[in-house]
Amino acid sequence: MKVFEKPKALTDAPFHYCPGCTHGIIHRLVAEAIDELGIEGKTIGVAPVGCAVMAYNYFACDMIEAAHGRAPAVATGVKRSCPDNIVFTYQGDGDLASIGMAETVHSAARNENITVIFVNNAIYGMTGGQMAPTSLPGQVTQTSPYGRDVNHCGYPVKVCEMLAQLEGPEYLERVAVNNVANIRKAGKAIKKAFENQINKKGFSLIEVVSTCPTNWGMKPTDALKWLDENMLPYYPLGVYKDRSKEEK
């Protein structure tokens, strides 16, 4: 009989995340992948600035806290100095797609052999619900109180679509954690992103469409529904680049 248990790659520290937040699920998926691949001892994680800023307390592997948006650059340094270690970043939408866009694009262009977990919940959570680079048109946030006006502040950034234009990256997939089936798919994608690194294939980014019930101002169940109805049409799930498939 298999007893449900916490992945070994997570510490015993209780998460600080809000009730209903999907970060907990995504942490777990990352930790499961690390456990299944038996790489905890050689994995080095890089935490972002944003809600996951304290991820360094939750993952049992060695961890580095980066400046806002700089995780891919930090990971580049780590990976270049320790090529046999496994290096991942865990970043939110503000971190990865706004302030850290240059680091994201260039680490992808270099096909840096790292794994990037990109949590897209269309809002700045840590600072209390401001407009993110991925906030949807019309989305109400603290800094777009009348809804995101695309004539004023432009359109959301579709990270997977954009990076797929580059020669560099090995693997880009967008997944979601709004239901069991999607969570299972997300887990597979994350594991593949780590396997790619082990096999020295290069840059793998998994965009995880997720929720922020607190700052969206919704009950967790409503947030999952909102994700399904609003985010997924704008951010279609799927594989955006997989060089191993292209080569076949």
Partner: peptide, 26 residues
């Protein structure tokens, strides 16, 4: 050794941060 031309000064110092975290001279 490793030479890498970074995309910016900001990226360069953060790459330095990464290597230094692993205890190597950078």
């Amino acid at each position: 050794g490793v030479f890498l031309q970074a995309e910016s000064e900001v990226a360069a110092i953060n790459m330095v941060y990464g290597v230094s975290s692993t205890g190597k001279r950078v």
